[in-house]
Each structure stands twice: as C-alpha cells, then as structure tokens.
Amino acid sequence: MAANSDLAYVQPSSDGVPFILHDSTVDRTTDGTGAIRGMTSAQLKTLDAGSWFAPHYTGVRMPTLAEQLADLRTRGGNLLLEIKGAHTRDQVTKIVQVIREQQMTGRVFIQSFDVASLQYSYELAPELPIGLLRSTLDADPVALAGQLHLTAYHPPGSALLARPTLVADLHQAGVAVMAWTIDSAAQWRSLNQLGVDGIITNRPAELAGWISAG
C-alpha cells in the first residue's frame, strides 16, 4: 500500500501558466479574491499565500507547477498530480510540457475527475501513468479502464468497501486501485485487506506510521 507521494492540484492562470491550487478561487488561501482562471500569472504571484496557514509563512507565494516539480526533484519523492476541473487540450499540453522540462516524467502520476483531461494526457504523453477519480463506482470499471488506458482507478474508499471484489477484478485487468480520502485506521486496515495499491488521506504521516508498524 503506497504512502510516499505528495498530492498537488494544478490549475491554469488566465495566461496559461499551471499553478498549484486546490480551490477554484484564491479567496481561502491567499489575501486576494477571485477565480484563479481569471487572474494572470503576474497577479497570482503578488498574492500572500502563507499567512492563512501561520504567521511564519507570511509572504509565501503560490507555486507554479514548474516550481513545485523543481522543489520535489531536489528533495526527492513522487507527485500525485490532480488536474483540477475541466482543461482544454492546450492546457493539458502545457502541463505535460512542464513535467518534461523538469525531467519528472518518471515521478509524476496524473489523476483527474475530468475524463477529457486524462484522454489528452494519454495522447500527449502515454509514458505518464493516469488515474481516473470517481465519486461513485461505474457499472463496469474494468471496461472503462481499458477504454481510457488507465493505469489506476481511484474511487472513494467507502465505495470499495461496499463492493470488495472490484479490487481483484481490476488487478486481474492490470489496473491499480487507489482509494480516497480515508483518514481512519479502521478503514486503512479494511482497504489494505482488500489489496488496494494506495490510499489518499489527509493524515499522511499517521498513515505512513501505521504502515510501518504493520
């Protein structure tokens, strides 16, 4: 069960620069207001993106995807990169370009709820593994995984627990399974018994400790 990848969310500025941000607006995590897609990269770089978290981080700027990857390349580790929301082919092309420029194709795994973004990613960079995020289970996840050339299928952990044979079915088709977002040790244990390949959690340090102790 994997627990050694950073998770980041990528979205474009109005001038097409991929930035790391979870929300669709900058309101919650910066001193600015407005949709990230309605602001230029220069405008985004003026925002204080650290004060909301702690005074020590006052003045920290929102990172671009390039900056995030450069930092990760230096300190080590892998990145589970979620393409957040719908993206055009040109926007996905830019994401792929940045990953290649940073020489990180072997350490980035792309996931998204947006099927078109995953299709663009596969067409542009078949060497990048892709995972489809789902809010509910599809009628036939194995068939869908084949159609989309998925490396992995990423449903809610609770849905997997309600349909436990699915993990084995996907594994038989050569598709990994990653469950989200699971924060309890009891569910970690249940999902581990099903054989999931990874868990997305808000408690990564605790999950890593739980795996080490097991």
Rank of each mutant, 00 (worst) to 15 (best):
T30G: 06
V142E: 00
L194E: 04
T64I: 07
E123V: 03
T25G: 04
Q103M: 11
E206N: 05
I211N: 01
E101K: 04
L65A: 13
V60Y: 06
Q111C: 14
Q119T: 08
L44A: 06
I83Y: 03
S117W: 04
I99R: 02
P141D: 03
L118F: 02
W188M: 07
S14F: 08
T105E: 12
L44P: 02
Q187F: 01
R89K: 14
F53W: 15
L132S: 01
A162Y: 04
V108E: 02
Q193F: 00
T29P: 15
S190L: 12
S135E: 10
Q97F: 14
I36R: 05
A42D: 13
L148W: 13
A168S: 10
S117Y: 06
R189A: 12
L207P: 01
D138R: 04
V10S: 02
Q11R: 15
L150R: 07
S117F: 06
I182C: 06
L207S: 02
Q172G: 06
Q102L: 05
P204E: 00
Q103L: 11
G38K: 08
L80C: 06
I199R: 00
S51N: 07
A86H: 14
M62F: 08
A8N: 08
E67S: 05
G106H: 14
A208I: 07
I110C: 14
L207A: 01
Y9H: 14
P155S: 05
P63V: 01
S121L: 03
L194Q: 02
Q111Y: 09
A139I: 10
Q43E: 12
L133P: 02
G157C: 03
V196E: 02
T93H: 15
P155A: 04
V10K: 00
I20Y: 12
S51F: 08
L128H: 02
A179K: 00
I110F: 13
F109K: 12
T46N: 11
I182N: 07
A3D: 10
I182R: 03
A86P: 12
A173M: 11
V142P: 02
T181K: 02
A86D: 15
H149W: 05
F113E: 09
D140L: 01
G209E: 13
S51C: 06
T88S: 15
A139C: 04
A159R: 00
A66Q: 14
G146S: 04
V108H: 02
M104S: 15
A66H: 08
D27S: 12
I211Q: 03
Q147E: 15
D23M: 13
F19C: 11
G146N: 09
A66V: 11
P156D: 13
G32W: 14
A70H: 10
L191A: 01
Y122F: 14
W180V: 01
A213N: 11
I36K: 06
N202C: 08
G85F: 07
G146Y: 05
Q97M: 13
Q119H: 05
H56F: 10
